[in-house]
Design a binder for these strands. Structure first.
Lengths: 148, 148
DNA sequence: GTGGGGCTTCCCATTGTGGGAAGGTCAATG
DNA sequence: CATTGACCTTCCCACAATGGGAAGCCCCAC
């Protein structure tokens, strides 16, 4: 199976498969005489694992750990659980931050007339910083959505 | 005031101030004889506005719009409100996605013994993809946290 | 033998942010 | 006045994960 087939079968784009290979997340694929990467069912299985882990929000680095555990028949399920729960904590923290932003904005918006006049409590707040020293983060890229 | 002072006063790092200038979010600062950027209170005020908007999760592009509205004395508060609410919608969507991940992971973890044995429902699930075709996103960078 | 589609590698862009090097400046102290 | 240390300048690099696209080779079907 060539990379295009593997991509379709696994839900990971060809571009990403090459990237994962390049960064060492997956081992280099076998090559055909012409230099084409060839994949077996087993490889697709791994790619699928990766995609699912990505869908659960794990970083590539986290996936590397997960893959290592997956392949280690002597693993302790406690280690996997720790990773999962640790990630849940990260997720929840992020959610909390996002929620704080949303709530602030929402309440600000509810004080805004939303008409043709210029007066706006939202801008006033951003300007004066009444929203507290909430050192919240930002920078959460919105899904370029590599279509499934 | 030099850039370092402005950075401290506004909560925006010097690096970022230069970046914002370079990308046109703020207009080029005045320069001293030696080529040092100099800032007035007014500039710091603008930088503070930017930082607050970032804290509310707006992208630089969004902030550019917000700034334009802020400076436009003939703005309609409705436009500001639209932006705020639009952003809230984006935030909520993100939250929903994150929550789906957290919930899946949490429930999976709760089925995991978490002991020294290798059997693990979490890995099984990721492997077999029982978690549904939830094409959720990922890639939400966690705050490098430019400490304020 | 030719066309179209798939594959290869390589480079670029994205979004904000920080790190660091090489060099100029400035203020204070000896 | 000279040195020192803190500050400024520009320029390049890196990150994380992903897509876009170009140039060129390959393979199969017709």
């Amino acid at each position: 199976m060539n990379i295009g087939q593997a991509a379709k079968a696994s839900g990971v784009s060809a571009k990403m498969i090459r990237y994962y290979e390049q960064t060492g997340l997956v081992s280099p694929a076998a090559r055909s005489g012409a230099g084409y990467r060839t994949y077996a069912e087993k490889d697709v299985h791994t790619l699928r694992f990766i995609r699912r882990a990505r869908d659960l929000g794990f970083s590539v680095e986290g996936i590397a750990e997960l893959l290592a555990l997956w392949r280690d028949r002597t693993r302790h399920s406690a280690d996997v659980k720790d990773m999962a729960l640790g990630h849940v904590a990260v997720l929840r923290k992020k959610i909390t931050e996002l929620e704080a932003m949303a709530q602030t904005l929402q309440s600000l918006a509810s004080c805004c007339a939303g008409d043709e006049r210029p007066d706006c409590p939202i801008l006033k707040d951003i300007e004066d910083g009444t929203d507290g020293p909430a050192r919240a983060p930002h920078r959460f890229g919105l899904l370029p959505d590599g279509g499934a």
